[in-house]
Design a protein around this nucleic acid. Structure first.
Lengths: 229, 229
DNA sequence: AAGTTTCCTGAGAGTTATCTGAATATTTAT
DNA sequence: ATAAATATTCAGATAACTCTCAGGAAACTT
């Protein structure tokens, strides 16, 4: 019930809310603020286990905030959000220890996966990094997908789509849901692309499975069936 | 969980925090201070197993601090931090016993590696100095890299990059993370240089391996695969 | 059974990531 | 001082990937 505490820092209310909702749903305790000053006090007050920090804030940048936090003795990991096209995207040198970067625009599931990966390493909770559903297993550290001992090569999007399906076994997920979770939040294309990628996945995976992998629930979406449960 | 105790001494909060976070993540117990006077009392109080000491402090220099510490009976090793342009011969007199020095700006992984090397010698902990991943082995003391009994000559940067990859087997590391850990902390160049060095490493290593060494995980980073896991 | 809707998949255009050779700059060694 | 080794930048080539579209197949409706 009481998952790790996460502080979300972004000045765009849209993204803040998007992240807050997603992380709450993923089982984290979430608090969100919109500027650097509020970050400092929120950290001192709550001592979050991880901070999701946009490096472009109205009052300070990621450097200053990190500096202030580390100076105040805060040592928990930070996941930095950086704009990909920004002229000032040379913000290397920020990640120490278990920190990591994610570029905007990101996909919601990608953020959750990265947060889990960091906490797995820093909080030493014996959490499994391998997902297993039926005959498929996916190692989230090495990004490898296995069926039996056959390694399946997947493109980034194929990998993220499969991960989302594997995180929701025995549950029908709609194309709209998939689009919201797997694609970047500013993607404004057609839901038909999900069909294409489901097709790609089937082509790569089905030759190695004993039965078809991804079930189509006509009119509703797709589902990955797990024999157990 | 209780690693060796390390005292970090530097007057620049930036570097102090960078070091603190990195060393904590590496499993050390870390305390940090910012001047010579605080160093003396911290040592007497905590009896650290190693001190990371900037030689240019506001109140005393490395000579004085070391002299005072040795005079007080403190015998544990010291890793000195020196500015590159400062006269290095002054340092040579300081590093006696198990001591060592590193020039600023340093790379975070280099510091951790040097500390580990010193502690290996002084604390006699039966810790392995040879890294092995798949067919490659690396002796961190002699800086030699082997594939089978073939010795591979690597430049300093090539060596550090390979070490970082070998310390993270079966885990995808992004180019930004590599840059932050392997290159000096003030490097503000492009991440493309990582691509160049990966290319160099492959050219030198792949002729001797049975399968390609460094795997590219397009869109995510690079990974070194270890057969056992 | 015919019509309608939804889904599947191949083809292709456009984009992006990565690799590598070569040029330049810098450091180290002689 | 000069030469050699190493570090960094750059740009073209290549390969991989993303996304759209459209015809046909399958499933559902009437």
């Amino acid at each position: 019930m009481a998952g790790p505490k996460i502080l979300v820092v972004d000045d765009e209310p849209n993204i803040r809310d998007l992240l807050t909702a997603s992380l709450r749903f993923a089982g984290f305790q979430v608090r969100a603020v919109g500027n650097g000053a509020a970050t400092i006090s929120a950290v001192l007050e709550d001592e979050p286990d991880l901070i999701v920090l946009d490096v472009m804030l109205p009052d300070m940048n990621g450097f200053s905030v990190t500096k202030r936090l580390r100076g105040a003795g805060y040592t928990s990991p930070i996941l930095f959000l950086t704009a990909k096209d920004s002229t000032e995207d040379k913000i290397t040198g920020l990640t120490v220890g278990g920190d990591d970067y994610v570029t905007k625009p990101f996909s919601l599931d990608e953020i959750v996966a990265r947060i889990r990966a960091i906490l797995r390493r820093t909080m030493m909770e014996e959490e499994e990094s391998t997902l297993k559903v039926g005959e498929i297993s996916m190692d989230q550290d090495s990004h490898e997908v296995f069926i039996g001992d056959e390694v399946i090569e997947l493109s980034p999007t194929e990998f993220k789509l499969l991960r989302y399906l594997m995180l929701n076994p025995n549950r029908v997920v709609s194309k709209a849901q998939i689009l919201d979770h797997v694609w970047e939040y500013d993607f404004n294309g057609d839901a038909g692309i999900v069909e294409s990628y489901v097709s790609y996945l089937r082509r790569k995976l089905d030759p190695f499975t004993s039965e078809p992998l991804i079930q189509t629930k006509r009119g509703f979406g797709y589902m990955l069936k797990s024999p157990k449960a």
